Amino acid sequence: MIPLPRAWLLTSSMLVGAAVGVVAAVLSTLLIQASIRPDMVIALVLGVPSVLGLLMVMIAGQRWVTALGAFLIAFAPGWFAVLVLIQVVHGA
């Protein structure tokens, strides 16, 4: 059984995760100037945090680990959305 934290804590961790993902995307875009293949970026931005978050949720023994896993799961879409928005605005 997955230990679920209270609803407000789970929702808050996901909201903060999405916001941190947005900030991470902006910072990574400003700091990294290297040309990286788009499929590698998608794998790194969506794959790694999502797999780590799902793994944390599945093996969680305490409620705070589940909240941290939800944070990581919400981190990926926030980061990816900003990267897509940057590409759309720049016309690429």
Rank of each mutant, 00 (worst) to 15 (best):
D39I: 05
V26Y: 08
L9Y: 02
M1H: 09
T11K: 13
A74N: 05
S35R: 15
W64S: 00
V88D: 09
A19G: 09
V41M: 14
V26W: 10
V84C: 04
A74H: 07
I73T: 08
L46S: 12
T11F: 13
A19C: 08
S35H: 06
A34Q: 15
I86N: 13
P49G: 04
G61D: 14
P5I: 04
S50Y: 00
M56Q: 08
V22T: 12
L55I: 08
M40Y: 12
A18W: 12
I73P: 02
L55W: 14
L46C: 13
L85R: 06
V20Y: 00
G78T: 07
L72T: 09
R63M: 10
G91L: 11
L15V: 15
I59K: 09
V20D: 01
I42C: 03
A7C: 01
A43L: 14
T29C: 02
A24Y: 08
L46I: 10
Q33H: 14
V41G: 01
A67F: 07
M58I: 11
V23K: 09
V88E: 08
L52W: 11
R37Y: 06
A19T: 11
V26E: 13
V23R: 11
G17N: 04
G69R: 02
P3G: 03
T66Y: 01
S13K: 09
V22I: 15
M1N: 07
G47I: 02
V48E: 06
P38T: 07
L55S: 10
V51T: 12
V82E: 04
I2F: 03
P3W: 04
S12Y: 02
A7G: 01
L55Y: 14
V22S: 12
A60S: 14
T66C: 03
A19Q: 04
H90F: 09
S13T: 15
S13R: 05
M40I: 11
A92Y: 06
S50K: 00
G61F: 04
L9S: 04
G53S: 08
A67T: 10
V26G: 00
P38G: 02
G69D: 03
L15C: 13
R6G: 14
M14R: 08
L85S: 14
D39Y: 10
V89I: 15
L44W: 03
A92Q: 07
P49K: 03
W64D: 00
P3N: 05
V20P: 00
A25K: 01
A92D: 07
A7E: 06
I86G: 06
P3I: 05
A60N: 07
G61V: 05
W79H: 12
H90C: 02
G21L: 12
I2L: 11
S50T: 12
V48W: 11
I86C: 04
F75M: 10
S35E: 15
A18K: 05
A60F: 13
F80V: 00
A81R: 11
V57L: 15
A43H: 04
G17W: 04
V23D: 05
Q62R: 15
V20R: 00
R37E: 11
A43M: 13
Q87E: 13
L55T: 13
V23G: 09
